[in-house]
Nucleic acid binder design. Structure first.
Lengths: 125, 125
DNA sequence: TTGACATATTCCCATATGGGAATATATGAG
DNA sequence: CTCATATATTCCCATATGGGAATATGTCAA
């Protein structure tokens, strides 16, 4: 039973710094062949190809075959999902945090659930 | 040599769906004790505590000791980093993508670097 | 003190990951 | 066809990860 498929979504794709670097490069320089990324990142070519594979699988980048080269470019709409998700918390970081702490202390009164998944220790004597 | 410390930043923290779920819950319901999260997520308590540990380590959540309970709340400013990063690509998903593809094909002319990290195959005769 | 409750920590295991090394595939040149 | 270039794929290894199970820590009540 796969309760939570961790991988293969946009959030996971941009979790790695290297992959974020690639995305930034593709944004600043428009569209780049693998070889250019290899030189720029200073990574071995297979590593770059694998990162590009992850980004491509989730649709953050796409490829054009240009002769023997593969030119990668950004598909920025896929990043919009991330943008939208974080945007939901935008209003929060405008408010002073102390209020949040107060709210935490206030609402803590209501926290008294009995988590069923807790197994009894071993049966008392 | 750690060329790129993959872990322990905000991007990595929200990469897991479970952790994103926790963040969403804390936003919608304000501040929650671990037990509440355990019940809501249907995860065993240790798992929840570990996820909270990851989020806390990067500062996305914080804790208040409330009696025996630990009440967690959001520190939304940490999410701002993600917001800012994605925002840099905001303008891109407003433009039609065909132009980007054209641009890719256009710029592909300039892609002719010689990746040094490529080892010669076996030495030609 | 002891005991119950709430949470954290540790150990274990299966899987995913990044990068290195080697090899395979594809495409163009001749 | 063969060869070289450009990239992708595979194998391997060390490390990280999520979740289960068990245990430890902390805090309150009596």
């Amino acid at each position: 039973m796969p309760p939570a498929p961790t991988t293969a979504d946009v959030f996971n794709a941009i979790a790695g710094p290297r992959r974020r670097q690639i995305v930034e490069l593709l944004e600043r320089r428009g569209a780049l062949a693998v070889g250019t990324l290899v030189v720029t990142l200073g990574l071995p070519q297979p590593a770059v190809s694998k990162h590009l594979g992850v980004l491509r699988k989730v649709g953050v980048v796409a490829v054009i075959k240009q002769g023997k080269q593969r030119v990668y470019y950004l598909e920025a709409e896929k990043l919009k999902a991330v943008h939208d998700w974080v945007k939901a918390f935008e209003e929060l970081w405008g408010h002073q945090l102390d209020r949040i702490k107060e709210r935490a202390e206030h609402r803590a009164r209501e926290q008294s659930e009995s988590p069923a998944p807790l197994k009894p220790r071993k049966g008392q004597s």
